[in-house]
């Protein structure tokens, strides 16, 4: 071990420790889930294009046929409303008045065909019951974008 090599190892070790410390810092302060809102989709929907869409499941809009596994519901952010269709069983935490993020594409027939439904459970974004103000929806969208800390 020459002094030259010692310096090399010291500098290298410091670089690695700093990089890992930065990663752990970043990991603790997590970033958001990205999706577009129903009103953003309604403003500029391109048929056939893939999107990730997030919003609240409109109460009373869910129709599920357990025989054919056809699921229909609508997502809203208070301003826009997008009809969504999906084939499959809804996830556990999926429900009316709760937040959901769906992946899929906008169809020429005028509905969103979801290939994946992600429902998140948190007390923070219960449905803005009886309060259709846009502020309440904005709060819910923000809660939905937040990554659940583990």
């Amino acid at each position: 071990m020459t002094t030259n090599q010692n310096t090399k190892f010291l500098v290298g070790g410091a670089v690695i420790v700093l990089a890992l410390a930065y990663l752990i810092y970043t990991g603790v302060t997590q970033s958001a889930v990205y999706f577009i809102t129903p009103s953003e989709l309604a403003a500029a929907a391109v048929a056939g294009k893939a999107y990730r869409l997030g919003g609240m499941v409109v109460p009373g809009s869910v129709h599920w046929n357990p025989a054919s596994l056809d699921l229909e519901f609508a997502l809203t952010d208070g301003k826009g409303r997008v009809p969504v269709r999906h084939t499959g069983t809804p996830p556990d935490l999926f429900g009316e008045g709760r937040g959901a993020v769906v992946e899929g594409s906008w169809t020429p027939e005028g509905y969103f065909k979801a290939t994946l439904i992600m429902a998140k459970h948190s007390e923070n974004y219960q449905a803005p019951h009886g309060d259709p103000s846009s502020a309440a929806y904005e709060e819910m969208i923000r809660a939905l974008q937040r990554r659940a800390p583990r």
Binding site: I24, V33, L93, M118, R147, R150
Partner: peptide, 20 residues
């Protein structure tokens, strides 16, 4: 051994979007 923190965060982030 140094890869373990990377694996930890990548698996965690991967799963927080797809239902844990």
């Amino acid at each position: 051994a140094l890869n373990i923190p990377l694996v930890h965060f990548s698996v965690l982030w991967w799963r927080t979007l797809h239902q844990p």
